[in-house]
Design a protein around this nucleic acid. Structure first.
Lengths: 238, 238
DNA sequence: CGGGCAATTGACAATTATCAAAACTTGTGG
DNA sequence: CCACAAGTTTTGATAATTGTCAATTGCCCG
């Protein structure tokens, strides 16, 4: 009896499961547990009793680290199809929380480790995902260490747009683009960009005044000129 | 005929090779190539003709990313026994250069991929190393996004001390500690900490005035009070 | 011993943070 | 459906950390 149906899963061919042939999915089905986590709730803490890993089916997860006095840095945002957790390793000192309501397809760490060892292609997909996270972290290090406040905010808006509407990246010029749902509050955005909430707000306004975006509700905006926004997100060649 | 001797290698049981039994080392020996890179020289660029990977035998490698206008961020420092390069993936947009004179034990990407697929334990050690790099990157994101200038400099000195003299971490209190060789110039340090070289210099002096360190030549210093330096590197609980 | 790069020092500017108050959402319950 | 409360966000005034620019000093190596 299958508790879920991997074969008809929304992310079946975009998550790491894509590495597995239909046949092998039966095995996964027996281990997978669907779980919904409401916005703001903790998904796992360092040193949880039962270490788990999961595919993100929908929603956005934020990973964060903090200093003892409360200063917080969001060190990663994870979107649907991404793989959360760390087989073959512990710790890392990050906390995972649901930024929006999240649906997970979860496994125990042990279960996943077994699958990875058994299925070589799955292991390779996992390695690739991990390396992608490393690349994303380093890209963000460049942002945190060297970009100005307005460049950071522009980069963040583009990141959200690209992750939420992958199609639009390719569409040319200033065609009407779908509104972007920001998965973070101002405070969280500030913690992601290494700024204060006030500075984030001011920069968003600046981008709006410049006509690059249009700000609707607190969490929604439309990109009016993607090209100029991209130019604002990092300098161009002289 | 063996070009090197893995069995007697200085890092044989600390690099990922530790995963392999002596018997399997014969295979490695046939592929490994020792290579010395002088300080400042490029090790690999993104999209090199022959993608390579390597164990760092001695010296320090810096990984960096840049914006088009020249702003640079060092996104990783790699020390002896660490594994450089990315099997099963390309790109990442980072440049690897020798920070000091470096000795590498290098392989082509293809060779290493073959070894990883063939030897499960090696693969797992590689995964663990990659995850360690991810953790290090995230720790640095916290530093870049949220720490003050002096906290950053203190953190950097401690990082160098710990990586160069792993023994001293355990030694208690204010016993005489070996002098620390900084592998980076002021400019490079600034690019690692997301500061300017002037600010780095000022903070080093501040730490010296406070009696936490003693600054010898430009690249050498001694930690006089490790405990207080650690306290300066991040805040403590109230 | 001198040339050249690297580091220090100092004066000043600027970006971003801090603090405080007002305006606005959002959700709840009558 | 409206009113109200709580939490966010915006706005403004001011401060502070860090950056910029320029000049000097120091150090390494031929």
């Amino acid at each position: 009896m299958l508790r879920n149906n991997c074969l008809s899963c929304a992310i079946r061919d975009r998550a790491i499961c894509q590495a597995l042939p239909d046949a092998a999915l039966v095995q996964l089905n027996q281990m997978a547990r669907r779980r919904t986590v409401k916005a703001g709730q903790r998904i796992f803490e360092d040193g949880a009793d039962v270490p788990m890993v999961a595919n993100i089916v929908s929603g956005v997860v934020r990973l964060s680290k903090s200093l003892a006095d409360g200063r917080t840095q969001i060190v990663g945002l994870m979107f649907p199809t991404e793989f959360l957790g760390r087989p073959f390793a512990m710790g890392g000192g990050v906390m995972a929380e649901a930024a929006t309501t999240v649906v997970l397809c979860s496994f125990t760490q042990r279960q996943m480790e077994h699958m990875l060892v058994t299925h070589g292609e799955l292991q390779q997909h996992f390695v690739r995902r991990t390396i992608e996270q490393l690349d994303a972290a380093r890209e963000w290090m460049l942002l945190l260490g060297r970009k100005t406040a307005i460049e950071r905010v522009a980069s963040f808006i583009l990141l959200c747009a690209d992750k939420m509407h992958p199609e639009d990246c390719r569409s040319e010029g200033r065609a009407a683009l779908a509104p972007v749902e920001l998965p973070l509050s101002r405070t969280e955005t500030a913690d992601f960009l290494g700024l204060t909430l006030e500075t984030v707000g001011r920069m968003i306004k600046k981008l709006e005044t410049a006509g690059l975006i249009e700000n609707h509700s607190n969490r929604t905006l439309t990109i009016l000129d993607r090209e100029r926004l991209a130019r604002q997100s990092e300098p161009e060649l002289p």
